[in-house]
Design a protein around this nucleic acid. Structure first.
Length: 643
DNA sequence: CGAGCCTAGCTTTTT
DNA sequence: GCTAGGCTCG
C-alpha cells in the first residue's frame, strides 16, 4: 500500500536529525517516540504526515490525535505549507472530538439517539446537583457532604482510570469515606438523568466510542481500515480509556506512532496515566522506540536548571537533554519582598525589553493557577501593557453565555431537561421547584399542543411561558441561519440580562462576540458540540489581535509552546507545589513535572520570581519559602539570588 | 415557593 | 473579586 513516489520536493534527511528522520520514515508498524522538551516533536509529526502523503498514502486514511484541536490545526497547517493542500485533508482532533464524530455516525448501533447533546462542565454540575438534592433518604448534613464539583471529580477519575468509586474515595478523598453509598447512589441517578435526557458528558464520548468499537467486530474493522495511520501526540497525557481507543482504532494494522515525554505528564488529575507510555511496547508488540534528546529550543544555562529539576524526580525515564546553543544568560532567581514588588518587577522587565526593541509576544508569564495573576493583571493595566491570558476561566463558562446557549440546546435536543430547567428558571416567579416540575411535564410531550397545554394550565406564568415556547419554535425552524437564531435568543434574553447584571453592557458584548463566532458553523448541533469540546477563549478568537501582547498563562495551557523569555511567578511553597498536592507523593511529583514544563518553555531568558511574603486575609502578611523544587537546585545555576 | 439580601468562604490544573 | 448558601419576607 505504500508506493515510492519519485521526485519528492522535500529533502527529509537534510531537514531533520538522524533520530527524527528514523521516526519520520518508519514504513509501517508501531513506533514510540520519546521526545524530550524542545526536541522537535512537532517537527517530527509534521514531517511524518508529509512523508506519508509523499509516499502515496491517502490523506483521508491518516488520523492525527492531539491534545487540543488548535494543536492539530497548527500541525496540519505546517504540513500543508511544507507539502501541499493534501495535508489539510488529514483528520486531526482530540480524542473527544474523534469520539464525537464516531458517535454521530454510528451511535444508533449501541442504542444512543443521534440527536444527543454534549454536556459541558456546567450541565454536568447542574445534573449532579439535581441528583445530590434528590437523594432519598436526604442527607441530613449537606454541609459536610461533598459538593457537586467534588462528586464530578470523583466520578470522572473513576471512569478515566477504570477503577471503582470506593477506591477513588479512599485513596484521594478519605474524609468522604462515610458517604460512599450516597456517592454511588448519585452516580446511578446521574447516569439515569443522562440517559433520559439524551445527554453525553465528556467521559461518555470516550466510554461510548470505546464500547462501540468493542461491541461490533464489523464496525471496528470498518473504522480501523479507514484510518490506516494513526499519530498520537502527547501520549503521556492519555488515560486508560484513550489508550484503549488507540488500541481498537489500530486493529489489524498496528500503524501507530505515539509521541510523548513521560517527564511532561501533567494531567493525572484528569486520569492521565503515564504508565501508558511505558506499557505501549507491551500493547503493541515489536514497537520501535526512538528517543529524541537533542534540544533545539533552550540555551545550555537553562537546560542546566531543567535537567536538575527532573533529576530529582523519583521515577521516570532518564534522559539528558543537550543543546548546541551553548551560551546565554544565566537564569534569574528573584525574591522580591511582596506580591506588589513581584508585579512591579515583571512590568519593569517587560517595559525594558520593549525599550530595547523586544516584542511583547516573545514574553510569557507563567503561573500555577489562574488566580495567581490577578494582582499582576491590574499592575499591567495601570501601566497600559496589553496582554492575553490563557487558562483559568473560560468565557463560555460565564452565566450569560450559558443562559443563551441553553435556548439553543433545548431547541436542538428537546429532551435535554437540564437545559430546560435553566431556561425556565430565568422566567419571573419561577425558581428551582417550579422549573423542575414544568420541565418534567415538558418532557412528557414535546409537541406544540403539549406546550400549549402547559401554558393553559399554569395560570400566572401563562404569558412568559408562551413567549418562551414561541422562541423555542422559532429556534427549531430549519430555515433560519444559526446566526439569526442566536440574535433572536439574545434579544429574548436582553431584559433578563439587564435586570440581573450591573455590568450588562460588557456581557452584552460577549454575547455579540458569540454570535459573530457562530457564523462559521453549519448547524446548531455542530456549533454546540464545538463550544463544549473546544471552548473558545474570550480574547483568543480572531476577534482580538493576539500579536504584540504579553502572554499570561497557566502552566497547563503553556504546554507545547515556547517563548524567548519566560517569567515564572509565585515560585513559592503553597503555590507550586499547590497545597492540594501535599497529601500524596504522586501529586507532588506531578507538581515537579509542572515546573519542568514551565522552565523548558524558555528559549533564551528564564526568570523565576518567588515573593518572600504572601498576604493572607486572616493572618495578614506572612513569610513564604521558595518552592522546594528550586531550593534543591545548586545556587550557582542562577544569577542574583536577591534583589 | 420565590426573591432579595447578607455573609462566609474560597479558589488547581481542562476535554 | 464572586458566588453558593442561609435567612427572611411577601
Amino acid at each position: 500500500m505504500i508506493f515510492n513516489v519519485p521526485g519528492s520536493s522535500i529533502d527529509y534527511s537534510a531537514q531533520t536529525n538522524p533520530e527524527q528522520y528514523a521516526a519520520i520514515t518508519v514504513p509501517e508498524g508501531p513506533v514510540l517516540v520519546i521526545a524530550g522538551a524542545g526536541s522537535g516533536k512537532t517537527r517530527t509529526i509534521v514531517y511524518r504526515v508529509a512523508w506519508l502523503i509523499d509516499q502515496g498514502v491517502d490523506p483521508h486514511s491518516i488520523l492525527l490525535l492531539t491534545f487540543t484541536r488548535k494543536a492539530a490545526t497548527e500541525m496540519l497547517n505546517r504540513a500543508s505549507r511544507l507539502l501541499d493542500g493534501r495535508a489539510a485533508m488529514v483528520f486531526g482532533g482530540t480524542f473527544h472530538s474523534v469520539g464525537y464524530s464516531l458517535l454521530k455516525k454510528y451511535s444508533q448501533s449501541i442504542g444512543i439517539e443521534r440527536s444527543f447533546s454534549i454536556m459541558d462542565q456546567r450541565d454536568i454540575l447542574d445534573a449532579l446537583e439535581q441528583a445530590r438534592k434528590g437523594l432519598n433518604p436526604p442527607v441530613t448534613d449537606l454541609k459536610s457532604f461533598p459538593k457537586a464539583k467534588t462528586i464530578y471529580e470523583i466520578l470522572s477519575r473513576t471512569v478515566g482510570a477504570s477503577i471503582e468509586i470506593e477506591r477513588v474515595v479512599s485513596d484521594r478523598y478519605p474524609h468522604f469515606e462515610e458517604y460512599i453509598p450516597e456517592i454511588n447512589k448519585i452516580s446511578h441517578e446521574y447516569n439515569n438523568i443522562k440517559k433520559k435526557n439524551n445527554l453525553l458528558d465528556y467521559d461518555d464520548l470516550l466510554t461510548e466510542s470505546v464500547r462501540l468499537l468493542e461491541e461490533s467486530d464489523e464496525l471496528r474493522a470498518h473504522i480501523s481500515s479507514n484510518w490506516r495511520f494513526l499519530l498520537v501526540d502527547e501520549y503521556q497525557d492519555t488515560n486508560r480509556l484513550q489508550a484503549k481507543m488507540v488500541r481498537m482504532l489500530a486493529t489489524g494494522h498496528d500503524n501507530v506512532m505515539a509521541v510523548g515525554d513521560d517527564s511532561q505528564s501533567i494531567y493525572s488529575f484528569r486520569g492521565a496515566n503515564f504508565q501508558n507510555i511505558i506499557e505501549f511496547p507491551d500493547i503493541f508488540p515489536n514497537t520501535r522506540i526512538i528517543k529524541l534528546e537533542e534540544n533545539y529550543r533552550s540555551t545550555q544555562p537553562i537546560l542546566n536548571v531543567t535537567n536538575q529539576i527532573i533529576d530529582f524526580a523519583s521515577f521516570g525515564y532518564r534522559k539528558r537533554l543537550f543543546t548546541r546553543r551553548a551560551t546565554g544568560p544565566l537564569p534569574f532567581l528573584l525574591r522580591p519582598a511582596s506580591e506588589q514588588d513581584q508585579s512591579r518587577i515583571v512590568t519593569r522587565l517587560v517595559l525594558d525589553a520593549l525599550k530595547h526593541g523586544g516584542r511583547l509576544d516573545d514574553i510569557a508569564v507563567l503561573f500555577r493557577a489562574g488566580f495567581h495573576s490577578f494582582e499582576l493583571e491590574s499592575e499591567l493595566a495601570r501601566n497600559s501593557v496589553p496582554f492575553v491570558k490563557y487558562g483559568g476561566f473560560k468565557f463560555v463558562e460565564s452565566q450569560h453565555i450559558k443562559d443563551v446557549l441553553a435556548y439553543l440546546k433545548v431547541s436542538n435536543n428537546p429532551k435535554d431537561l437540564v437545559s430546560w430547567v435553566r431556561v425556565l428558571k430565568m422566567l419571573p416567579g419561577i425558581g428551582d421547584k417550579t422549573a423542575v416540575k414544568l420541565a418534567n411535564s415538558i418532557g412528557k410531550d414535546f409537541t406544540t399542543a403539549g406546550l400549549e397545554a402547559i401554558c393553559q394550565k399554569s395560570g400566572k406564568h401563562k404569558e412568559s411561558l408562551s413567549q418562551l415556547f414561541d422562541l423555542y419554535q422559532r429556534l427549531r425552524d430549519n430555515q433560519t441561519s444559526l446566526q439569526e437564531k442566536l440574535d433572536t435568543a439574545v434579544r429574548h434574553y436582553l431584559p433578563y440580562l439587564q435586570a440581573s447584571f450591573d455590568n450588562y453592557p460588557k456581557r452584552l458584548k460577549d454575547l455579540e462576540q458569540l454570535a459573530s463566532m457562530s457564523g462559521a458553523y453549519p448547524s446548531v448541533a455542530e456549533f454546540l458540540a464545538e463550544v463544549a469540546l473546544e471552548p473558545p477563549e474570550a480574547e483568543n478568537s480572531d476577534y482580538f489581535d493576539t500579536s504584540q501582547k504579553l502572554v499570561l498563562s497557566t502552566i497547563h495551557s503553556a504546554k507545547g509552546l515556547e517563548w524567548e523569555t519566560v517569567i515564572i511567578i509565585w515560585a513559592t511553597e503553597g503555590r507550586i507545589p499547590s497545597p492540594m498536592a501535599f497529601n500524596s507523593a504522586d501529586d507532588l511529583e506531578e507538581e515537579r513535572r509542572l515546573i519542568y514544563v514551565a522552565t523548558t518553555r524558555a528559549k533564551r531568558n528564564l526568570v523565576i520570581i518567588a515573593p518572600q511574603t504572601v498576604y493572607d486575609r486572616r493572618l495578614g502578611t506572612v513569610p513564604v519559602a521558595l518552592s522546594r523544587f528550586f531550593d534543591q537546585i545548586s545556587p550557582d545555576s542562577f544569577q542574583s539570588y536577591f534583589t
